[in-house]
Design a protein around this nucleic acid. Structure first.
Lengths: 143, 143
DNA sequence: GATTCATCCTGTAGCCGCTACAGGATCAAG
DNA sequence: CTTGATCCTGTAGCGGCTACAGGATGAATC
């Protein structure tokens, strides 16, 4: 029977939580809908009531997103950090897998970069009959 | 008044075009709907009828997608390669801009990679009380 | 007490670049 | 003439949000 009166002690509105974490209000609600975040308590009138611990969780979530973790991965990480904070091994597995993804992406992008850079360099910028940029894109350029 | 009888000469069904270019049938129709590709001729019964030139265009499109160009950029490139094949300058502008994007993405990913790799390395994989992976994600780890 | 205005609520639709289906029409081969 | 492959349109879904509309509260001011 706590929180008859709202916004006591450490309790936060969604707007305040948004400010504190830099996560959009709509996004917070989206995280709740998709079960990345647990549904918080509500006031008598139905407004969401967050605890200060939620700031920590949401900040974690935000940072993980910035690091490119998917919401599925984050759901898993949050479960692991939760009550049965068991296997660091599992956390490591997720992070390592993600690291592999990142490395593959970097390698792809660098190949692209080299190809594009080389091509743009050949480009005079004038109205030439044949454009090297269009050429590499063309079927001839297949490798 | 050509093409009364279908699939004469160099004319292709959508399935054949798909095979030749490796682009999914549904994706080809999607490109048409979103005006990346022009609508092709039709047979009397309403089936799409492609010319051999369309193979070239779609292959170009595919390759551009692989190189990470957005459909908007590709729409622009295709227009430029079209009838008024005017300014290589504009092509160069689009490609250069895209190159900048790629470089920014690479730089971001490399930062990520370094941070994650360092952290995973610190991780023993055992059930330790504090997990370095969860730690960098945590608020403390902000930089 | 009444008004104002910020904040909150739910629900729905849009973004990109596809992909996947349903439910039907048509084609080519046996 | 039947089978089975291919085609058609239209609609809905994915992830990860974002942006409304239309309404209900909340806090501060007069």
């Amino acid at each position: 029977m706590r929180a008859i009166t709202a916004s006591r002690a450490q309790e936060l509105t969604i707007g305040r939580l948004s400010e504190l974490t830099g996560v959009n209000i709509e996004t917070i609600r989206y995280y709740e809908r998709t079960k990345v975040l647990p549904a918080p308590a509500r006031t008598a009138s139905g407004r969401r009531l967050y605890q200060s611990a939620d700031v920590r969780t949401l900040a974690f979530l935000r940072r993980a997103r910035e690091l490119g973790f998917s919401l599925d991965e984050i759901r898993a990480l949050l479960r692991l950090g939760g009550p049965e904070k068991a296997s660091c091994r599992e956390v490591r597995r997720i992070a390592t897998h993600h690291l592999d993804d990142i490395r593959a992406k970097i390698s792809d992008l660098r190949k692209l970069e080299r190809l594009l850079a080389k091509t743009v360099a050949r480009c005079t910028g004038t109205t030439a009959p044949d454009c090297p940029v269009l050429d590499i894109l063309d079927i001839q350029g297949r490798n």
